[in-house]
């Protein structure tokens, strides 16, 4: 977190720097079938975040030592393209990307019906082309849509969204500027049909009341985002 500052990020009417109210989301678009050579894919823009996810498989799992006799394995790779950030991101090994890949995999393994595909692998590539704030949420949400597009069976899709705190006010879906001056960040991965969670992280400083408010913002936002996801998979049909 960027820590405390004197910068005023919320005006006297409660409006944020980009004109949103505290519980409002940035603009979101979702598109499927964007990587023609993949089995399933999704492009999601969220504010000025842009993420592309491609799914390959289920397919034969190589190398053999990674195979599981009783279920499929997910191979999740989250990566930020070198031109996705203001200062160029050096390609290669990166601890942050490794952690995000892992927690994304843990979240998705909770919903994909892995036991239907023993000895197989499902590969999920999350590529951030443009990063603003909250790329891990965009990646996880887009990965669910890409898995659905690939016909991979799941008990539910995962909707991921974060809320946080700026100028002692709890707000939903921090943008880049807010994230820089933010005092807390609470990303969650929510199953929209049951309200259960499969992904949870937090850093910063929140009182119990603030925490409850952030939690509720995420729950409400998840329902809205889920509607966009359903719309994209149904291609505008009822």
């Amino acid at each position: 977190m960027g820590g405390y500052g004197d910068v005023q990020m919320i005006d006297e009417n409660g409006k944020r720097v980009d004109g949103r109210g505290p519980g409002d989301l940035r603009d979101i678009t979702i598109e499927t079938d964007v990587v023609p050579v993949a089995d399933g894919s999704c492009r999601m823009t969220w504010g000025t975040n842009e993420v592309i996810v491609a799914v390959y498989g289920p397919m034969e799992c190589h190398p053999r030592k990674l195979q599981r006799q009783d279920r499929a394995v997910l191979d999740v790779a989250y990566n930020m393209a070198p031109f996705s950030t203001t200062d160029r991101m050096r390609p290669g090994f990166n601890r942050r990307s490794r952690e995000i890949s892992k927690v994304t995999k843990d979240a998705l393994e909770s919903v994909v019906l892995l036991e239907l595909y023993p000895r197989s692998k499902i590969r999920i590539s999350i590529e951030v082309l443009s990063a603003e704030a909250g790329t891990r949420c965009v990646g996880l949400t887009a990965a669910s849509v890409a898995l659905a597009d690939a016909g991979v069976p799941m008990t539910d899709m995962v909707v991921s969204v974060a809320s946080g705190k700026i100028n002692d006010v709890v707000v939903c879906d921090l943008n880049k500027e807010e994230d820089n001056y933010g005092e807390a960040d609470l990303p969650m991965g929510i199953l929209p049909n049951s309200g259960q969670l499969v992904f949870l992280q937090m850093d910063g400083d929140l009182s119990q009341e603030e925490f409850n408010q952030a939690w509720q913002y995420n729950m409400d936002a998840a329902q809205m985002i889920h509607n966009f996801m359903v719309d994209s998979l149904k291609g505008g049909e009822a």
């Binding site: 050579v37 993949a38 592309i52 790779a77 990566n79 390609p91 290669g92």
Partner: peptide, 18 residues
């Protein structure tokens, strides 16, 4: 100038060093 072909681009492209 550098090119990166990550596993997103096709079944045969793998992650790891270039």
């Amino acid at each position: 100038c550098s090119a990166e072909i990550r596993p997103v681009a096709g079944r045969n492209w793998e992650s790891g060093p270039p």
